[in-house]
Simulated assay, not measured.
Amino acid sequence: MPNARTHTRPAALAVWLIIAGTVGWWAAFSLTMERFHLLQDPDSIASCDFSVLVQCTKNLEAWQGSVFGFPNPVIGLAGWVAPIVVGMAILAGARFARWFWWLFAAGMTFAFGFVLWLISQSIYVLGTLCPWCMVTWAVTIPTFYAVLLHLVRSGLVPAPAPIRRGAETLMGWMPLLAVISYAIVAVLAQLQLDVLGSLF
């Protein structure tokens, strides 16, 4: 039966954290470079601007692109380091205290909530799909799921045994959960922006 001391070295989760952190960091870095490029030459076209619908510039220059007074990608540059470090530490044999996992989960919850808000702003307010932003969405969503399910299955979050076993089962279905989430975003984008109609 899972308890607070089981799953102390979740290798699969660690590998995913490293992959997701690396991909997320690269997306944040790429967006940061695009922002610097636009600041140097406001009349330039970002390399991620493919059409009126698929572009980065509108997202970067809107107030939603600097919610806290500085470009959002800076948050990613700092934030995505955490999953990489945690993943590496787990593979190296580190075991973290309950408070550490809760703090890490709080950070991932913030990232997940922020991404959901950015998705809504991108689709319903700005009317654009930013390529590098979508890469960030693609890794943030399953990472949040994985961390949350790990906390539940390992007993780090108080839950009855059946719920812990359910979390353990759902970890094996993580790819499907991610695909379902992507499909929901795609459907919302299609209904609001007629993505397919703009392509064909």
Results as ranks from 00 to 15, higher is better:
Arg5Tyr: 12
Thr6Trp: 07
His7Arg: 12
Pro10Asp: 01
Leu13Asp: 03
Leu13Trp: 05
Ala14Phe: 04
Ala14Asn: 06
Trp16Glu: 04
Trp16Asn: 06
Ala20Glu: 01
Gly21Lys: 05
Gly21Glu: 00
Trp25Lys: 00
Phe29Ala: 14
Phe29Thr: 06
Leu31Asn: 05
Glu34Lys: 13
Arg35Phe: 13
Ala46Asp: 07
Ser47Glu: 01
Ser51Asp: 09
Cys56His: 06
Cys56Ser: 15
Cys56Ala: 08
Asn59Arg: 07
Asn59Glu: 04
Gln64Val: 02
Ser66Val: 00
Phe68Gly: 01
Phe70Gln: 08
Pro71Arg: 07
Asn72Asp: 15
Ile75Pro: 00
Ile75Thr: 10
Ile75His: 01
Trp80Glu: 12
Val81Cys: 13
Ala82Ile: 15
Met88Ser: 15
Ile90Cys: 07
Ala92Lys: 15
Ala92His: 06
Ala94Ser: 11
Phe96Ile: 09
Phe100Trp: 08
Phe100Cys: 09
Trp101His: 14
Trp102Thr: 11
Leu103Tyr: 02
Phe104Ile: 03
Met108Asp: 06
Phe110Pro: 06
Phe112Trp: 10
Val115Phe: 09
Ile123Tyr: 05
Tyr124Thr: 12
Tyr124Glu: 10
Val125Glu: 10
Thr128Glu: 08
Leu129Ile: 13
Leu129Tyr: 03
Cys130Phe: 02
Pro131Ser: 13
Pro131Gly: 11
Met134Tyr: 10
Ala138Leu: 09
Ala138Trp: 02
Val139Tyr: 02
Thr140Glu: 05
Ala146Pro: 04
Ala146Thr: 01
Val147Trp: 10
Leu151Thr: 14
Leu151Asp: 15
